[in-house]
């Protein structure tokens, strides 16, 4: 097992004593198969117990350890040391306020996620005795990729429009709205459109595509948002040019 000395530059911010964040460098002896999260854990255990960051599963499932690594939004547990040089710069996720060190304030994302009603809203209530909601494999495929989202917020850190216009509902929340809209068991699209088709909804997106490039689960939020735009545009023309056509 080969070992390599890495200069780990970490953006530190202590709200009780600091007026602005600053970089602190740690020399970390890294094993070649380590990920950046391992290096942070080494710092916390051996060099500096005051370092704060979020993590949980260490296997790209929980979505907690999103951070900027050399300026790119990454999961700390999926960023292998051997893919980097001898100096690695780690910062909290861009576009989110810093709570402390690598910990960001995520209330804004949580509120936006809730606003698009990311859960099944059945077309009609069905008693349990009436049996299950059946779905074909083809119907499942329509939305399956969007179910892979782990709410890691890398797409928000990558999206320049979210950075410039914080009111923007953003990639993951809109992609999840699309996931439920595309579900054959769901009837909640009209309710979601109130938020999704507003100015701060999908129309703040200009298809930079960065969200899909950084998504660790290949959800392709950018694709979902363009599909929402197409559907919302068809809605608009139907509503205004053909008002006699009822949905």
């Amino acid at each position: 097992m080969s070992e390599r000395q890495i200069q780990l530059e970490v953006l530190r911010y202590n709200p009780e004593t600091d007026s602005a964040p600053r970089f602190q460098t740690y020399a970390v002896p890294c094993l070649n198969e380590w990920v950046v999260l391992d290096a942070l854990n080494y710092v916390k255990e051996n060099l500096d117990p005051t370092l704060s960051y979020r993590w949980s599963c260490h296997m790209a499932v929980c979505g907690s350890c999103g951070m900027m690594i050399n300026g790119e939004p990454k999961l700390g547990c999926k960023a292998f040391i051997h893919e980097y040089g001898d100096s690695i710069r780690v910062e909290p996720l861009a576009h989110f306020p810093i709570e402390r060190d690598l910990v960001t304030v995520v209330e804004d994302f949580i509120a936006k996620l809730a606003s698009v009603k990311p859960y099944l809203i059945p077309k009609e209530d069905k008693p349990v005795s009436a049996g299950e909601f059946k779905q074909t494999p083809a119907e499942l495929m329509k939305f399956k990729q969007y179910t892979l989202c782990i709410n890691c917020m890398l797409c928000y850190a990558a999206c320049p429009q979210y950075g410039l216009v914080p009111e923007f509902v953003g990639p993951a929340a809109l992609a999840l709205a699309h996931r439920y809209n595309q579900d054959s068991r769901d009837g909640g699209r009209d309710q979601r459109q109130e938020v999704v088709a507003s100015d701060e909804g999908v129309w703040e997106c200009s298809f930079v595509g960065a969200c899909s490039e950084v998504c660790p689960k290949h959800v392709d939020p950018a694709g979902a948002l363009q599909q929402i735009k197409v559907a919302s545009t068809i809605d608009w023309y139907k509503e205004h040019l053909m008002p006699w056509v009822k949905k």
């Binding site: 911010y13 709200p15 009780e16 600091d18 602005a20 964040p21 300026g71 861009a94 576009h95 306020p97 810093i98 709570e99 304030v105 320049p160 950075g163 410039l164 930079v208 595509g209 960065a210 490039e213």
Partner: peptide
């Protein structure tokens, strides 16, 4: 709590990354 907000330049933000 005293969250720190990092400001983004409204005119030069796209210089940050090749994809922008």
């Amino acid at each position: 709590r005293k969250p720190y907000v990092r400001e983004i330049s409204k005119t030069t933000w796209f210089l940050r990354q090749p994809r922008y």
